[in-house]
Amino acid sequence: MLYVVIAYLWASIWLYLLLGGADFGAGIVELFSSKGNKLHTRNIMYKAIGPVWEANHMWLIIAVVILFVGFPQIYTLMSTYVHIPLAAMLLGIIARGTAFTFRNYDAIDDRWQKVYSKIFVYSSAVTPFFLGIIAGTTVSGTINPQADNFLDAYVLNWLNWFCVSVGCFTVAICGYLATIYIIGEVKEQSDKALFVRKAKFMIIAAFVFGALVFATAAYSGVPLAQWIFGHTVNVIAIVLAIASLLFMWKSLYVSSPVLLRILAGFQVTMILFAATSTHFPNIVLLHGGQALSLLEDVGSPKTIATLAWALLIGSIFILPALFYLMYSFGKENKEVIGHDA
């Protein structure tokens, strides 16, 4: 049963990265759009993500609940020592979620729209940035519960070049996912060209920040290269991701949108796989070589069994409904997108 729970934890992080990530990406793409086509970009993206945006963010809640019910030590250690970026991420989530709703449900269309949009686009970038920082912190071995001063215990574990690079890399990945998603949603060739350009921009950004992650890891003493290149499966995962990316670069225009989405999803999956498989079952590496493990730092067996059943039964209700939601509106969007209403 423990492995069922771990699988759900991984799957919800994965889905949050893919779906929530594409959703954050929509705001990031808008942030980096030129003034001329900002409004056009926004209209296309709103129609594509409107009905499902709320559901995309539920995966984060599922992951957090699994953590605090099943793995309380991991949840409490993170929330104690990584408090500040978690709080920053929360502020980002609040600002983004509400600004998105406000801009769509304000009955009067006036200059307030600009305020909501500003908040929306900036928080769309800030939130995944801090998510990346938090992810970086879990593997950088900098969390030190024995630290006796504020900076070492609560700040310097996440505020370092490596974690910041992971944050930037996450932002680029989200933007990339969004552009690939939208390419499949637009009808007109000019729109397609626009988003192909944006996708290329995001791919370059992801490459630059990805390289930076490796460089800063070496600088900060995180043996990242050794982890990735020391394991055959990880090497395969990364090679496959890069190969499919090169293929995509060539064929962004001509490939079917479904293939593009599958490839993009595949690449992100491989990155997450390489990042998490290396240390499994460890999930948080601490200062001094200790680690928190998904197999050892676990709630009681009865809790795990009940949690696993709750997740399995919940899936029976959620997944068909979610697929039907995405299917119904995906079909509709094909017909309406591309015309500014």
């Binding site: 609940v65 699994i66 605090f68 019910v69 099943g70 309380p72 949840y75 409490t76 709630g299 009681s300 809790t303 009940t306 949690l307 709750a310 997740l311 919940g314």
Partner: peptide
């Protein structure tokens, strides 16, 4: 408390 009262939260 997490592992004890977490059930309603997961539901």
């Amino acid at each position: 408390a997490g592992p004890i009262f977490g059930m309603p939260f997961s539901l």
